[in-house]
Simulated scan of single mutants.
Amino acid sequence: MHGTPHIVSDVMTRTVVALGRGATFKEIVKTMQQWKVSAMPVVEGANRVVGVVSEADLLPKEEFRDGDPDRYTQLRRLADLVKAGAVTAEELMTAPAVTVPADASLAQTARIMALHKVKRLPVVGDEGVLVGIVSRSDLLKVFLRDDEDIAEEVRREVVAHVFPNPVEPIRVEVRDGVVRLTGRIPDTTLVPVAARLVRAVEGVVDVDCALMGPRRRPALDPDLPDREITAPPSGVGGAA
């Protein structure tokens, strides 16, 4: 994978098990067990996603199987009681489905999952047609990216643009996804900008920004010691 940011279509699973509206309760359970998934999209027509059935949608049938709930429970959990009596995917599904477009960034997708508290999302193309499925584990695939691949992108997409004329060559080292930048630059106020851009590179775990400004010149500043100007930490703004 090359380039940043990566999008959902780079990591999604393209083989998707889907249900029709008329799929029965037992068919749904059997399919989940067979494919080892916890949720499946419900489609109609030309594979247009209309809902999602998850294990959470199925559990009320077992929970309320052995007795009638009290009045308080009936009022508080009306939606679950309705699902307890459901027998088809159309009755069980959560609709409208929470989906993500194939060209969404991984960061956008992670935010949608967190907001809706779901572990996987149907991926859709034009007119809501199902093209794949993306899970939490798929979003973590970027952290398997090779260190040298990350280093090359940082050099090409960050260092070359932010620091085109460094005082001394900037060295980019990556170990287990942690990027370390060393070297001298004319303007240390750009260090926080560089750190943010490096963190945005897919697969980066953390950034150790040890960039420094130019050396003091005692001949021009006789009252100042000849010392290095260390750039501020990557998470802190301002000049050194």
Rank of each mutant, 00 (worst) to 15 (best):
D221A: 12
D221K: 10
G203L: 01
V198Y: 09
V201T: 10
G203Q: 03
R215G: 03
I229S: 04
A231G: 15
M212V: 07
D208I: 15
I229F: 06
C209Q: 10
P222M: 09
M212Y: 02
D226F: 13
R199G: 02
A200D: 00
P233H: 11
P232D: 05
L197V: 00
R216K: 04
P232I: 04
P214S: 09
P233A: 08
A200E: 02
E202F: 01
R199I: 00
R217I: 14
I229N: 09
G213P: 05
P218Q: 07
R196N: 13
V205N: 01
L211Q: 13
M212S: 12
L224T: 08
S234I: 10
P214W: 12
M212W: 02
E202K: 01
C209Y: 07
R215I: 12
P218H: 09
V205K: 02
P232H: 05
V204D: 00
R196C: 07
A195I: 08
V198F: 13
A195K: 12
P233I: 06
R227C: 05
P218A: 07
D208E: 14
P233V: 06
G213C: 07
D223F: 06
D208M: 14
A219K: 12
A200K: 02
R227K: 05
D206S: 03
R227F: 04
A231C: 14
P218M: 08
P214G: 10
V236R: 13
P233Y: 10
C209K: 03
D226I: 01
P214H: 08
V236A: 09
R217M: 09
R217D: 06
V204Q: 01
E228Q: 07
V204W: 01
E202A: 05
M212I: 05
P233W: 14
A200N: 03
R227Q: 01
I229A: 06
S234P: 14
V201G: 03
R199Q: 11
V204I: 05
A195T: 15
A200C: 02
G235K: 11
V207T: 04
A200G: 02
V236G: 07
V207Y: 11
V204N: 00
R217L: 03
E228H: 05
A210W: 09
V201C: 05
A210K: 15
A200Q: 03
G203T: 10
A195N: 15
V201P: 03
S234C: 13
L211A: 13
L220W: 11
A195F: 05
A195H: 11
P222I: 10
L220P: 02
P225H: 08
P214R: 12
A195D: 15
V198A: 06
R215H: 12
D221T: 13
D208V: 15
P232N: 08
R199E: 11
V236I: 03
A219T: 13
D221Y: 11
I229M: 07
A231D: 09
D223V: 14
P233R: 10
P222W: 15
P225A: 03
E202G: 02
R227D: 03
G203A: 02
R215W: 15
G235L: 11
D223G: 06
V198G: 08
E228A: 06
P222E: 08
A210P: 07
A231Q: 06
C209H: 06
A231W: 10
D223L: 15
A231S: 10
T230P: 08
D221C: 12
